[in-house]
Every structure is written in C-alpha cells, then in structure tokens.
Design a protein around this nucleic acid. Structure first.
Lengths: 222, 222
DNA sequence: ACAATAATGTGAGATATCTCATATTTTATA
DNA sequence: TATAAAATATGAGATATCTCACATTATTGT
C-alpha cells in the first residue's frame, strides 16, 4: 500500500469526480492509495479506519470459516465503495478484501467525516442504492447456488466472464465464488470438454458450443 | 388484507411511534393494514405501491426458481421495513412476501412520498443501517450454508428457534430456509433422535442433549 | 362434518459434491 | 537462476443431499 503524493493524486481526483456524491466538499478529506496486486485492503476481523472508493482495480471479498473453508462472497470491481458497512457501525469486524489487480482507491478517514456522511442525504441515498443492489445480487447468487447444480451455474458464469469465445479464469477463485470444491469444478469443466461445449487451448478454454451453454444457463434465470 | 378504520388505526400509531424515523411529519401518509395469516403482502414479480413497516407479525421472504424450487430467503419479523428495495428503484420486480401470522403494517404510499423519503437524511440513515445489517445476516447464512453440512446448521437453528427445551417448527419452512430438501431435513432430524440429541414428543422435539447440539453449532461461528 | 389441501413420515436408489492423496506445471521470489 | 509457492490436474472412494414414490396424519375451507 502506498499513499500517493499530492501531484500524483491530482489527475485521479480530476478523472474520477466524486464530489457529486456528497452535499459538502469532500476533496479536503480525500487521500489516494495504491494497493499492489494481491495486497489486503481489509484484513479479516479488523476495524477499518477508512471508507474506500475504488476507482481502478478489482478485488475479492471473502470470509474464512472456522473449518478452514473460504467463501468468496463477491468480486469487487471499480467503481465501488468498500468499508461502508463498517462506517455504518453495523459490523463488529470486517470481512477480508484482497486485491486481484493493482488498485487505486480514494480513502476517506472515517474518524474525520463519519458524522458528516451519516447526515448527508446525497451520500446516504447513494449508499442505500448501492447496498440494496448489492443485497439483491448476492441473494440471487446464493439462492441460485442452492437451487441449481454446478453445471448450470458454471455455464452461466462462463458466458458472463468469457472474453469473446475464450474463457480463462483462475479455477482457485472460481470454485470459491461458485461455492464448490476445486475438484468438483475441474470435474464439471472436464465434462464440458468431453461433451464438446468447451475445448482446452493455451491455458484456457474455447467456447465450442455456445448454444448448449446458453441453454444450460437459461435454466436458471427468467 | 384489510385497511383499518381511523379509530382502529389510532392505538397502533400511538403504540408504535415511527415519527422519529423521519425528519418530516409522516403521520398524514400512514395507513394501517391488517394481513391475514398466509396472505401475500407482495406477490412475486409485482410492483409494490407501498412501503410497509410491519409492527406486528411474522412473514416469509422467498423466491421461486425456474425449476420450481423455493428459497426462503429470510424470516421477516416485526418491526421491520418491507418494500424498501423497490422504493429505491433497485429492483425491477419484487420478491414474494407471505405472512406466517396475522400481521399489522403501516403502509406508506410510495407515489406520495418517494421524493421526500429519498431526500430525508434521518430516514436514509436508518435505511442504510437496516440494509447493511440485512446484507450481513444473509451473507453469514448463505456462506455457512455452503461451508457446513446440515448437521451443524440444523443444530444451530434448533438452538436459536427452540423455546426452552422444545423445538417445534414447520419442516416445510425450515428445509426451504436451510436450503435442503424436505427429505434430507427429516433424515438428519431422525439421526439426531437416534443419537439421543432430540426426542420426539407431541408434534415437536425435546432437546435431550443440548450440550452436543451446542458443540455442533459451535463448529460454525467464532 | 366432509372433502380438499397441507404437512408429516419413510424407503430406495441416484447423483452432485467432497475429501484426500499425489504429480505436474506455472508463477513468484530470494 | 534456483527454490519456494501457487495453480493445475487427475484418481478413487466417501458422503451429503436429492428425487421420486407412496402412506399417514393434520388442518382448512365449505
């Protein structure tokens, strides 16, 4: 983690204006941080000091269970807030957030502006929208997780995350996201290859039968 | 569903003051509705006209999947808001909410006060707290669902929902809540009886070995 | 009070998914 | 560049959970 100098800060502030999200001048309270790839933004069970607004990058929100299993709750993609739950005091201890790529974040000191933020209708409205959208996405994901076998969910995930006709995600992340074991993910991927829906190439998979994948995925959503 | 008369309304308004949740006078916009047991407050895929604040009763928030499976997302207990996601415009169509007991709700016409509500810092702050708490509860539930077998989750559920040493919930609801089949729930309950943790009595179960149940439940949470 | 509906209960077989062990390859790091 | 760490890969056996079929007992509506 590196705090950017004032000169480095400037272009980001200009390129990503967030003043519209507040009814007071937020700029004096903003610092810009850069997180390396793989670095932790929040450690599990910590008390965050900052509300972050990620403007560039990608991260994983996860929780480690007592039995050692890890649930990847969500892929966090910019632009988004992080630490808003903690700001609201709703959470005793934070979940973990680890970057997947180098990430740039605005950091707003909770100590300094908590009072102001929690009385700001512009910000609060934005936060409400953000929270409800997040809740709905998660509800959809998790209810589907328990209502459909991996076959359907994986097909859906491949279609969503593939670039053109090429799928190439880290199995280690995907299995945690879809809530299955690494072994089982590989098993179903192998099945897809056997059936000819996918074909291994380089270090990824080519979608060789998009139609069937779409049919499998379509069994989930209306 | 029955709209209460003005005289009937009065005692509820007095007993459950919610004016503190708003920075303007909400009373002119409040109507009081009574829902019968088993009645639907929101049908799935409808567009709610009211923001509800349930003051008495209990309901189920659920979603029906394309394959016919039902996920009981949450047990909704008073006091709580309902329809807040729709108010925020975040949801195209609503989930279903069905009462479990006769329920009394304050109804606030979205059409009439949406603008005011979405600019009210007092209400918005409350809503943020509510939403983030809900998100966290759900995240906890769903990540645990996929990280632990029913044995642990059921033990935890029994301890939470039993009255003194007696457990008596509808299996049909519980299996949807815990995300398993009816058959499997009964199977694990039978197992608990065989092991002597529970004993069938009347139409419920007596907790005959609370200690073991607590041990099973404790494997989940920190 | 009776019929319809919902809830409970059980068996048997299928399968989706997990655990663990182990080998190889790729990527990160000193 | 050597070494450690992470990611990929696969087999074999176990199990958690599901589906379906069917019978019984409550509960509800008329």
């Amino acid at each position: 983690m590196r705090k950017l100098s004032l000169e480095e800060t400037k272009p980001y502030i200009e390129q990503y204006p967030i003043s519209q999200y507040f009814s007071f001048d937020i700029n004096p309270f903003i610092q810009v941080y850069e997180f390396d790839k793989g670095e932790y933004i929040f450690h599990e069970h910590s008390f965050p000091d900052y509300l972050y607004y990620m403007i560039e990058g990608k991260a994983k929100l996860y929780v480690t269970h007592k039995n050692g299993k890890i649930s990847l709750i969500d892929f966090i993609t910019s632009p988004t807030f992080m630490g808003e739950m903690e700001l609201l005091n709703a959470e005793r201890y934070s979940k973990g957030i680890q970057t997947v790529t180098t990430s740039i974040c605005f950091a707003i000191s909770i100590r300094e502006v908590k009072e102001k933020l929690l009385a700001d209708p512009v910000f609060l409205k934005l936060l409400c929208l953000f929270l409800s959208q997040k809740t709905m996405d998660m509800t959809a994901k998790y209810t589907q997780n328990q209502a459909y076998p991996l076959e359907n969910r994986l097909a859906s995930f491949i279609l969503l995350s593939s670039d053109k006709q090429f799928y190439k995600e880290k199995h280690t992340e995907v299995c945690e996201y879809l809530g299955v074991s690494y072994r089982h993910l590989l098993f179903v991927l192998a099945q897809f290859c056997e059936e000819g829906y996918l074909t291994k190439k380089d270090r990824g998979y080519v979608l060789t039968n998009r139609q069937v994948l779409e049919k499998l995925a379509s069994e989930i959503t209306y």
